[in-house]
């Protein structure tokens, strides 16, 4: 890439930093240039977020329909997967999958629920009372 081809498209980086590119100057040598962003990757990031939001909305509906426990919703909301949630709560994925069932969730102790609430950075009440 030549130095004058470095994209300067506004992006989420604007509030943060400009990023380093390695580019060719007019003498054909490498040097460093700074970029505000590139539409091609901004759109890739946007589409990843669209997908996240679709998953959150699907989880919300599943909770509202009584098909999933609030854990499913907050896991998606916090962009977690089973590995991450297992890391933050200390529960094994096998048990987390059980806790995702509304019937099991309803019988869980406050002590266990508090571990989830802490992982999601919400209060115990928020977790228990989420209806979708």
């Amino acid at each position: 890439m030549k130095k004058d081809e470095v994209p300067q498209d506004p992006s989420a980086l604007d509030q943060f930093t400009r990023e380093v590119y390695y580019v060719k100057n007019d003498k054909g040598q490498y040097e460093v240039a700074l970029s505000r962003g590139w539409d091609v990757k901004k759109e890739a990031l946007d589409s990843a977020w669209d997908e996240v939001n679709i998953r959150i909305e699907a989880a919300r509906k599943a909770v509202a329909a009584g098909e999933a426990s609030p854990i499913v919703y907050f896991m998606e909301l916090k962009l977690m997967d089973l590995t991450v949630l297992s890391g933050y709560t200390g529960f094994w994925p096998f048990f987390i999958k059980r806790h995702m069932k509304p019937s099991v969730f309803g019988r869980m102790s406050d002590k266990k629920l508090a571990r989830y609430a802490q992982a999601f950075e919400i209060s115990l009440e928020e977790l228990k009372n989420f209806k979708g």
Binding site: M1, L13, E19, V20, Y21, Y22, V23, Y30, W38, V40, K41, E43, A44, L45, S47, A48
Partner: peptide, 21 residues
Amino acid sequence: LGQIVRMQEEIGTGGGGFRFL
């Protein structure tokens, strides 16, 4: 495909999947 582009071009790669670097 979007995921490939992000791994390839996101901040931290120097552009072109580290190839320019």
